[in-house]
C-alpha cells in the first residue's frame, strides 16, 4: 500500500520534470508566433524584445506557467555532446552569443 503511494509520488515528480523538446527560433515576431514557439524563446531572446512584444509574451504566459524556469533557463543544448540534452546535464557550460555580438566581432 505504502509502496504504491510512493510510486505514484515518484511518477508525478517525473511527469512534472519532463520538459518539451526545443527547436531553434530564427525570427522574433511574437505576435505571429504560436504559444509553442513563444515557449522556445530563450531568456536572451526576451531581453531583446520591444516593450510591446514583451507584454505580449508576459500575458500569453499568463504569469502562471511554473515551467517557465525550465523553458527559459534550462534549454536543450547540442554543442557539447552532439545530441540534444538539458543544459544542466550537459558536460560543458554554454554561453549564448547574440547577433550583435557576432557582428561586432568582425
Amino acid at each position: 500500500m505504502t509502496k504504491r503511494f510512493w510510486r505514484a509520488g515518484i511518477l508525478a515528480c517525473l511527469i512534472s520534470c519532463v520538459g518539451v523538446a526545443h527547436a531553434q527560433v530564427s525570427s522574433l515576431n511574437v505576435t505571429e508566433m504560436s504559444e509553442a514557439q513563444i515557449r522556445q524563446l530563450s531568456y536572451n531572446d526576451l531581453l531583446q524584445l520591444s516593450l510591446e512584444d514583451l507584454m505580449t509574451v508576459a500575458n500569453r504566459f499568463g504569469m502562471s506557467a511554473d515551467e517557465i524556469l525550465e523553458y527559459f533557463l534550462n534549454k536543450d543544448v547540442v554543442a557539447a555532446s552532439k545530441k540534444a540534452e538539458k543544459s544542466m546535464e550537459s558536460p560543458l557550460s554554454t554561453t549564448v552569443i547574440s547577433k550583435e555580438q557576432i557582428e561586432q566581432s568582425g
Partner: peptide, 28 residues
Amino acid sequence: RLLFLIVVFCLMGTSSLFAQKERFKALF
C-alpha cells in the same frame, strides 16, 4: 506521506511562481 508530497509540490509551485514574477519585473 501523500499529504506531505502534496504540500511539497504546492510549495515548489508557489516559490517558482514568485521567482517568475520577479523575472518578468526585471525584464520589464
